[in-house]
Amino acid sequence: MFLKEFNKGEAIAFMNLVKLFSEVDKDVAREEKRLIKDYLKELDLKENEITDLSYDELMKILKVMTERQRKIVYFELVGLALVDGKYGDDEVDFLDKVAIDLDINRSKKIAFANYFYNFKEIHDFSVLETENLELESLKREAETLL
C-alpha cells in the first residue's frame, strides 16, 4: 500500500526480508505468494532484480530508512504474516527480531496487528481482496498508524 516510498535499493532489501520471512514457517501459502507478487508489482521490480542479501546486509539498508519507512516495512510484514490465517511461533519470533532491529515499539506492533485483525474481522475476507473495497478509507486508516 505504501511501498512506492522506497527507492530501488530499499525495495530490494524489503523483498529480501519478505522472502526470508515467508520461508520462516517452511510453508509459503498461496495467499503469501500472491501478496509477494503484488509487492513486486507495486515496487515495479522483477524477480530477477532481487539480489540475495543476508539478514544483516538487508538490515544495514533498512535501518537507515526514515522512521515512517521502517514502520511501513514492519506493517507490510504483519500483513504478510496474517494473510494466510496462520500466525505461528516462528513468525512471531521473526517479527519480534525485525521490530527490535527497526526500532518499532510495542504499541506500534500491537496497533499494526490490530489493524489487520480488525480489517479481516469487519470485512470477513482476505486482505488480498481489498481492490473491491473503498481503498482510500482503508489507506487513510493505515496512514494514521504510520
Rank of each mutant, 00 (worst) to 15 (best):
L3R: 01
L3G: 07
E5M: 10
F6D: 01
E10T: 12
E10F: 04
I12G: 10
A13W: 03
F14C: 11
F14M: 01
M15N: 03
N16E: 07
N16K: 06
V18I: 11
L20H: 14
L20Q: 15
S22H: 04
E23R: 08
V24D: 00
E31A: 00
E31W: 03
E32K: 02
K33G: 03
L35T: 02
I36W: 03
D38T: 04
Y39T: 06
Y39M: 04
K41L: 12
E42M: 03
E42H: 03
L43I: 06
L43R: 01
L45S: 08
K46T: 04
E47T: 09
E49K: 05
T51E: 12
L53I: 08
L53S: 13
D56T: 13
E57C: 02
I61D: 04
I61W: 05
K63F: 06
V64K: 11
V64C: 07
V64R: 09
T66E: 06
E67K: 06
R68E: 15
R68Q: 13
R70H: 01
K71P: 04
I72T: 09
V73Q: 02
Y74W: 06
F75Y: 11
V78R: 05
V78P: 00
V78S: 03
L80A: 05
V83Y: 01
V83Q: 01
D84R: 02
Y87E: 01
G88L: 08
G88K: 10
D89S: 14
D90H: 09
E91A: 08
E91Q: 10
V92M: 06
V92E: 10
D93F: 05
L95C: 12
K97P: 10
K97T: 13
V98G: 09
A99P: 02
I104E: 06
S107D: 13
S107H: 13
K108C: 09
N114K: 15
Y115C: 03
Y115Q: 04
F116Q: 00
F119C: 01
F119L: 14
K120E: 12
K120T: 15
I122K: 15
D124R: 11
D124H: 11
F125R: 15
V127A: 10
L128P: 11
L128E: 05
E129D: 15
T130A: 12
E134W: 02
S137Q: 10
S137D: 12
L138S: 03
K139R: 08
E141N: 13
E141A: 15
A142Q: 07
E143D: 13
L145T: 08
L145D: 08
